[in-house]
Amino acid sequence: MKHIKHLIKLFLITSLNFFNISIAIFIGISRYIFREKFHVKLIDAKSAFDLKAGDSVLVLAPHPDDETAGMGGTISQLLDNDITVTVALLTDGSKSKAEKLQCINSQERAATRRKEFNNATKLLGVDQTFFGSMEKETAEWPSPQQLESHVQSLIDKFNNCNVKIIFTPPSFDFHPHHRATSTIAKKLASSLKSLPKVICYEVQAPFNSYQPDYWIKLNPLDKQRKAKALKAYTSQIHTLKSVKRLNNLRQSLSLSSAPVEVFTNIEKLVDENALGHGMFPLPTYDIPLLFRSKLNYNARYSPK
Rank of each mutant, 00 (worst) to 15 (best):
I266E: 05
K268N: 13
A227E: 14
I287K: 02
S252G: 06
S15P: 00
K95D: 08
K186H: 12
Q251W: 07
N159K: 13
P259T: 08
D156S: 09
A61H: 06
N208Q: 12
S252Q: 07
S190N: 12
N219L: 08
Q224T: 12
F172Q: 14
K241N: 11
L295K: 10
L192Q: 09
G132M: 03
A98F: 03
T234P: 00
N105C: 02
K95Q: 11
A110R: 03
N247W: 13
F117I: 09
I184L: 14
E137M: 04
Q224V: 00
V270N: 14
L10R: 14
A53L: 03
K136Q: 08
L275H: 06
A111Y: 01
H178I: 14
L275V: 07
T284A: 11
L90S: 05
L42G: 09
L89I: 07
P196W: 06
D65A: 10
T121I: 15
K244L: 09
L124V: 06
L275K: 11
L282G: 02
V203P: 01
K5W: 15
H177P: 12
K294M: 04
S209T: 14
D271F: 04
A229C: 06
S302V: 10
K157H: 14
I166Q: 06
L249C: 10
L253Y: 15
L188K: 04
A205Q: 12
Y301A: 04
L218H: 04
I216K: 01
V270Y: 11
T239L: 15
P259M: 06
T86V: 13
R109M: 02
L282W: 01
Y210C: 05
A45Q: 06
H178A: 13
L289G: 06
I165D: 09
N162K: 15
V40D: 00
F131K: 08
S153G: 01
C161V: 00
L282A: 05
S94N: 04
G73E: 09
N81Q: 15
